[in-house]
């Protein structure tokens, strides 16, 4: 860890690109930003494993691929397991034939990570495979047309949690992925956000430096699924942090840190009003839900302050 060259500005990020343009992610999609940065941050030979989802389908439509590194997709729920096998194979072949073991980077959506792929992820984390798992969380199953996942935030409308007259969107809280990862004993786990690229890049560096499993939970603007203006993705991402809805923090070898301290949070309404999925929350009849969300946000922030050893 000590010889990590953490960066200070965006200018320190290497210029080489390992993800080619020509992919078919929507205009303004936030997913490729973390991909570009991860492929730059992980030094040396690397292999990418993708779960089924937007990123996978849009970057490899036969006969074209956007990946300039080896890339493997098998199914939706098994990215961590597939990666485990690749890692084990290189471990064995390194011993037998001296082949140098590349770093394995896994990209799974929130559905592929929080829901259907959670068991495979848990297995991989528990077994301690040397891989960097990045969940690009756009807070719903986007590839199949915006269905709810356990990462969909409370209040959000999706096609399977529509803002109905009786039930105004999703009523359950978002699962705590970092908590789950840390409970497995990983050495490094962090949330990250494209509005803070230096922080994001440094987290990728830190995660890549660990020999063993690490988890990055990346906030992924999705203009299509969120019914938001594609040009405002980064702005929305920043607001998510500034309202304390999406805290940026890390667990680093036993220490919890809030990386982006939000002293004076902005009203959550500012964040909600930019996205169609939340607009119903601003209706008077849904005030109870809005209030509940505000309470959750505060509770979660206080929980993190406590973990970080800060006063609430």
């Amino acid at each position: 860890m000590s010889n990590l060259n953490l960066i200070k500005t965006v200018k320190d990020i290497p210029p080489e690109e390992y993800l080619a343009p020509g992919h078919r992610l929507c205009a303004g999609c936030g997913a490729p930003i973390v991909v570009r940065l991860a492929l730059k941050a992980v030094p040396g030979p690397k292999i990418v494993v993708s779960a089924t989802g937007c990123l996978e389908v849009a970057t490899t439509i036969f006969p074209y691929t956007s990946w300039k590194v080896p890339w493997v997709h098998s199914a939706f729920e098994n990215a961590a397991a597939t990666a485990s096998g690749i890692e084990a194979a290189f471990r064995a072949l390194e011993k037998k034939k001296g082949a140098k073991k590349p770093k394995i980077i896994v990209f799974g959506g929130d559905g592929g990570t929080f829901d259907i792929g959670l068991q495979a992820l848990s297995g991989a984390l528990e077994r301690g495979h040397d891989l960097l798992y990045i969940c690009y969380d756009n807070e719903a199953y986007m590839n199949t047309g915006i269905q709810r996942s356990s990462a969909t935030p409370k209040g959000a409308a999706t096609t399977t949690s529509p803002a109905g007259r009786v039930i105004p969107g999703k009523l359950e809280r978002k699962k705590d992925l970092i908590g789950i990862a840390v409970a497995h004993g990983v050495e490094y786990a962090a949330t990250a956000n494209p509005a803070y690229p230096v922080d994001l890049y440094n987290k990728l560096l830190k995660a890549a430096a660990v020999k063993g499993p690490t988890v990055i939970h990346y906030y992924t603007p999705c203009p299509t699924g969120w019914r938001s203006d594609p040009s405002r993705g980064i702005e929305i991402a920043r607001l998510a942090v500034q309202t304390r809805i999406w805290p940026v923090y890390e667990y680093d070898h036993g220490t919890w840190r809030i990386n982006i301290m939000v002293k004076k949070p902005k009203p959550v309404e500012e964040y909600f009003k930019l996205q169609g999925r939340f607009r119903h929350l601003l209706q008077p009849e849904n005030k109870w839900l809005l209030e509940e969300i505000k309470k959750d946000v505060e509770e979660n922030w206080n929980r993190l302050l406590k973990l970080a050893g800060l006063k609430t």
């Binding site: 080619a20 343009p21 020509g22 078919r24 006969p63 074209y64 691929t65 956007s66 990946w67 300039k68």
Partner: peptide, 9 residues
């Protein structure tokens, strides 16, 4: 690798 550049978005 990177052949998606043949597809102009």
């Amino acid at each position: 690798p990177g052949s998606s550049v043949e597809y102009k978005t």
